[in-house]
Design a protein around this nucleic acid. Sequence first.
DNA 1: TTGTATGCGTTATCAC
DNA 2: GTGATAACGCATACAA
Lengths: 340, 340
Amino acid sequence: MPKVTLKVIANTLGISTATVSKALKNYADINLETKRKVQELAKKLNYTPNAFAVSLRMKESKTIGVIIPTMVHFFFSNVLDGILKEAESKDYMVFIMQSNENDKLEKKQVDLLLSKGVDGIIVSLSNITKDLTHLNKIIENNVPLILVDKIAKTINCTKVVIDDRKAAYDAVSYLIKKGYKRIAHFRGGLNPQNSVDRFLGYKSALLDHNIKFDPKLVYLCDNNSDYSDGFESAEKLLQDHGENVDAIFTITDLIAIGALNYFNENNIKVPEQIAIFGFSNWFMTKITTPSLSTVEQNGYKMGEITARTLFQEIDDLHKDIPIKHQKIIVDTELIIRNSC
Amino acid sequence: MPKVTLKVIANTLGISTATVSKALKNYADINLETKRKVQELAKKLNYTPNAFAVSLRMKESKTIGVIIPTMVHFFFSNVLDGILKEAESKDYMVFIMQSNENDKLEKKQVDLLLSKGVDGIIVSLSNITKDLTHLNKIIENNVPLILVDKIAKTINCTKVVIDDRKAAYDAVSYLIKKGYKRIAHFRGGLNPQNSVDRFLGYKSALLDHNIKFDPKLVYLCDNNSDYSDGFESAEKLLQDHGENVDAIFTITDLIAIGALNYFNENNIKVPEQIAIFGFSNWFMTKITTPSLSTVEQNGYKMGEITARTLFQEIDDLHKDIPIKHQKIIVDTELIIRNSC
DNA sequence: TTGTATGCGTTATCAC
DNA sequence: GTGATAACGCATACAA
């Protein structure tokens, strides 16, 4: 914390701190000459206001908090990247916390953030979060909250998402149009909304194209060790169905890559013997052999939009403008490469 | 910010705020019964101290700042992961900022962090940072500073690094012992210390094994687009040397993967025709074809140690214990896979 | 054992 | 145009 305060400027200039404060803020009712002197000295002494005092006085901290499951993750680190870039441009600082897919921790982190007096909070929920009282607590405290990607439908706040169901529908429809008929799905856990929606998209794409939905072709990958989940499920898939399956739509690129590597190691040709379609467009998918078709899920853009909207809501709150919660849907896009 | 203050508790209990304050902190000179009542009410009202007031009063914020080049990066996100886990356990919050390899931005971020009154700062320098006045400013302000991985030798503070030179030396020596003789090096920029040290390690490994150092086998990859850097340098390498090169040691896994993909696409067998050795042990290196030999550079552990040491220095500063700057070297390890 | 008073650095109100 | 003064919420030295 800088140690040159209003008082030292006031004293060396022989005026009051009140005048100094106003002079620095260019108030209209201050003599031009005094202003000049004050601003000059302030610059010379390298004055910066004490952030704690300002926050205490103004009840705002120019600080937001972000809780995500983990940042060692292509998608989430891109979301953070977008948030940080936007915060940078608006002079906000951001506290980042990882819930590590632990709902208890997530709760505790909300309390911490609240107690630190952040002006707003962004959350991407852990996979196992079911009790939502911590989110409601944020809202009750009148702190703007935005959920991004891993959301809870019932919470009354702005949400930034993709249309998971549509994206999955499009991907599976693409596979069908390419001629694949026995399409398996490596799905995520039963709780997360994304996982549910992508599964539903898969299912309705099949039905809409007159392909019977076969629950035996759906494999659950919820060990949070995505790569091995994919690898092992691929093995099981072949044991269970042998040649009687010609494509897989996976909920995540990492799971897709796990499966791909299982096939590569076992000399099963992708896409000739089995096609794969991933989800998220992780950097890696460009450079696997074969490169992986996937769904672009623009994490950076989602982060940017989330932060921008949050700052808007903070402003509105400050100006007593009633804030209307939105559901913002960010576009996705099929990225077709060589795995199907 | 919570709105139940000491005063609220004091008033409803008909006692003074001083007593409440002390009761909550379990001071010895407070009547047990009063303590009980105060603590009970505090819990009931869900009291949390106003962080701004506490910080203003105590001149410490239980907050640290971290500046890294980018977080969309396997190594750096692991460093952050380690920092966050450690901070979590010590009840510190952390501001994270990305310099995006921009030295001007890095400077500005230091000022921001300082003005926010963080208790300590961790920096991993941008590749182009040369002027170090911002780092010295941190030190002058008496704020503990630790540099991690991307350090500047001349700054007088604690540093957490790996022994880049030795790690590179070991990797290249391994290649030599495996029988490779014409070993190229895809190096990083000329400024960063890591880049210099890994190059020097490469060079001395050659010399120590009586292999002539050939500057024509060294390719500069400093476009910060590591993958394409590797891809393109691989192409150039073959144009320049054809069969007269049998291995590459790259400064980074991503560059190695770029090269690997160039070879894969052009039907050049790795490692039969050319071997590759990477650096960092990114997750990806496990799952390329062939899998990539590399150097384990434990980012998580480096982050953990960095944060732990920083908190120690903050404590010491607080207790007026003179802090002695250390250079902490985290172990590396060769990870041998199928690319050499 | 408790309460009073003061100060941390700002900003804002209101006299002058 | 300017300057006391109070207030934000807390912690503490000191008085009671």
